[in-house]
């Protein structure tokens, strides 16, 4: 045991807080009526996920998760929310004989997927090959691998991002000229 027995419980509390943030953020993201609250739920979920990445001994990916998802993706979605009017329609305008049926069908499919994947991951006997690691997964190892083994995919990703930005500009510009 270490010199501070309370530190294990402290770590467990922080871990549970991140798990709760992930779960609550995901539930907020799919269940609210206003889209802006849904974006906030996605941001909370990504902060929780970044904490989990930290627990998975990868502080670099935790930083990137916050930087890209919370800093770029959520802010971009908020810009689109300001330009469009994306709120969910009120339920009474929907003319359906059984309004609960869609909810039940979606919940049943989601529960089936969750049960199947969770069952699969709980029943598999995961090996632990910690002795046969070829590297330690540190930031230094990531940097070396990005510049040697994965240099071509790295450059291709930057090209894809450039093309995506140009394509987004072209699509939005054409829409403006017609409208």
């Amino acid at each position: 045991m270490n010199a501070f027995p309370a530190s294990d419980w402290l770590l467990l509390g922080i871990f549970l807080a991140f798990v709760a943030a992930t779960v609550a953020g995901a539930l907020i993201a799919v269940n609210t009526v206003r889209i802006i609250r849904s974006v906030c739920g996605l941001a909370i979920c990504c902060v929780g996920l970044a904490g989990l990445f930290y627990f998975l001994s990868s502080p670099f990916l935790a930083l990137m998760e916050i930087l890209i998802y919370v800093g770029a993706v959520c802010v971009t979605i908020i810009f689109a929310v300001m330009l469009a009017e994306p709120d969910e329609p009120t339920p009474e305008r929907l003319v359906k004989p059984y309004p609960i049926l869609g909810f039940l069908a979606a919940a049943a499919i989601a529960a089936g997927v969750f049960y199947g994947v969770a069952h699969l991951s709980l029943d598999t006997g995961w090996l632990n090959p910690a002795a046969s690691r070829v590297n330690d997964g540190s930031v230094h190892a990531i940097g070396v691998a990005l510049l040697t083994t994965y240099s071509l995919p790295f450059e291709l990703i930057s090209l894809v991002l450039l093309v995506a930005i140009l394509g987004a500009l072209a699509i939005a510009h054409d829409g403006r000229r017609k409208g």
């Binding site: 779960v23 993201a29 929310v81 994306p86 969910e88 919940a107 989601a110 994947v117 969770a118």
Partner: peptide, 20 residues
Amino acid sequence: AAFLLAVGIYGLLRRRTLIG
């Protein structure tokens, strides 16, 4: 992760707007 996948599929089926 399985929970996140299930919630994402549920939202994909339930949401009626493109941003959702």
